[in-house]
Design a protein around this nucleic acid. Structure first.
Length: 255
DNA sequence: ATGGCTTCATAGTGAAGA
């Protein structure tokens, strides 16, 4: 089974690239973030045309998440349990008896911002949601744009970013607490201690200079982690014309 | 130099992303 996640930074702009990517890579599941598209504008026909199903949660202008799957999707939950959020950031669904939780986590702007308070509250709610889902399903995947670089190795210039948004101790503790619920950071484990990035700022020629961060993650429960055998970050996609600032990230497991 | 670019929005002295 091939499982992928990609923050597409507007599905309106990137639809053609997403369809091409699905055709080329044929993942079983692709989690998308930042659709930036109203619920009723989601181009479901473009996905069914190439034999994919989808569950999505959109809104105007910002956020928006989707799960694109090769086969039947069931038990779709929109948003988080016990947390009312006007922002469309979470969708959960079952595919081949595995629970997939697609997340577009709060950015937070800066650690002295109001949005950073929201980020912390939001992650508390996400943990509760994950606990709830994990009680219902043995095998879970939490994947998406976490907006957290878990360690210094995940940052191109840790000195410059020390204590800053995406890299603060508070955020890294949030990430650790999530793993402590019973998940592995699959890309980190499969790549060992190798540095790799999933996002590069549009500015400063960041991609060409490889000034990036690893903020998109695929978290796996133990049985799934045990059968994970390959992974990749599709930097070719980030190198294309008019790319998203995030690259697709994928893992393969014998499931 | 706390900028640089991209998207969505509106016509802002923009807002937000990461």
């Amino acid at each position: 089974m091939k499982i992928a996640t990609w923050n597409v930074n507007s599905l309106n702009v990137r639809l053609e690239q997403v369809i091409e990517w699905l055709n080329k890579h044929q993942p079983d599941v692709l989690a998308l973030q930042e659709l930036k598209q109203e619920q009723n504008k989601f181009p479901i026909n473009e996905f069914t045309k190439i034999n994919y199903n989808a569950a999505w949660l959109g809104q105007k202008t910002y956020n928006g998440v989707a799960l694109i799957c090769k086969d039947e999707i069931s038990d779709i939950v929109y948003g988080m349990t016990n947390f009312t959020d006007e922002q469309s950031r979470v969708i959960s669904a079952t595919y081949r008896n595995i629970r997939f939780i697609c997340v577009y986590c709060v950015n937070g702007e800066s650690i002295d911002s109001e949005k950073f308070i929201y980020k912390q509250q939001w992650f508390d709610a996400l943990n509760q949601h994950i606990i709830h889902e994990k009680n219902r399903y043995d095998n879970c995947v939490v994947l998406g744009d976490f907006n957290i670089a878990p360690a210094d190795i995940d940052v191109y210039d840790p000195q410059k970013w020390q204590g800053k948004i995406l890299c603060s101790d508070i955020e890294r503790e949030c990430f650790c607490r999530m793993l402590a619920l019973g998940f592995s950071d699959s890309i980190r484990e499969l790549s060992k201690e190798k540095q790799l990035f999933t996002w590069w700022d549009y500015r400063m020629n960041s991609f060409r200079r490889n000034l990036g961060m690893r903020i998109d993650h695929i978290l796996l429960t133990p049985q799934l982690m045990q059968c994970a055998n390959d992974f990749g970050v599709d930097t070719e996609q980030r190198a294309q014309e008019r790319p998203s600032d995030h690259a697709p990230v994928w893992i393969e497991c014998n499931w």
